[in-house]
């Protein structure tokens, strides 16, 4: 189970980083979302992975650490709000520039930049 969870976090983080490095705002937003999912599962795993163990003391003989779960909850809420804000910001920038380039460049400007390189 550990290896699977670790691989999952790794793949999600990798995808997130790749998407953040993209040129358009929408992939960047998706990338940040991926990264925050990865981080949430990572936090969850910090209390050690245990199957069939509730996060409540006294309910079962075997219980898991409740603190990371509380942390994840906070992180999810904050991440959600931040994503919503970024989404609104990206839309506003799109309205402002008429393009979804992260630097506000138009397609033509971008093409000339490429040529110069």
């Amino acid at each position: 189970m550990e290896i699977m969870v670790a691989l999952m976090i790794a793949v999600m983080t990798g995808c997130g980083v790749y998407l953040i490095l993209r040129l358009r705002t929408f992939p960047v937003v998706l990338g940040l979302t991926m990264l925050s999912y990865a981080v949430n599962i990572f936090l969850f795993a910090m209390g050690r992975l245990r199957a069939d163990a509730p996060a409540v003391i006294g309910e079962a003989a075997n219980y898991t650490d409740p603190l990371p779960q509380a942390l994840v909850l906070t992180a999810i809420v904050i991440g959600f709000a931040m994503t919503a804000f970024l989404m609104a910001l990206a839309l506003r920038a799109w309205g402002e520039f008429g393009t979804d380039h992260v630097d506000g460049k138009t397609v033509e400007q971008d093409a000339t930049d490429e040529e110069r390189r």
Binding site: I20, L35, M82, L86, L89, R92, A93, F97, V102, D103
Partner: peptide
């Protein structure tokens, strides 16, 4: 401000 804002927000979210 919109341009600087996007950079600032994405960096800080990361």
């Amino acid at each position: 401000r919109a341009r600087a804002g996007i950079h600032y927000v994405v960096l800080n979210l990361t």
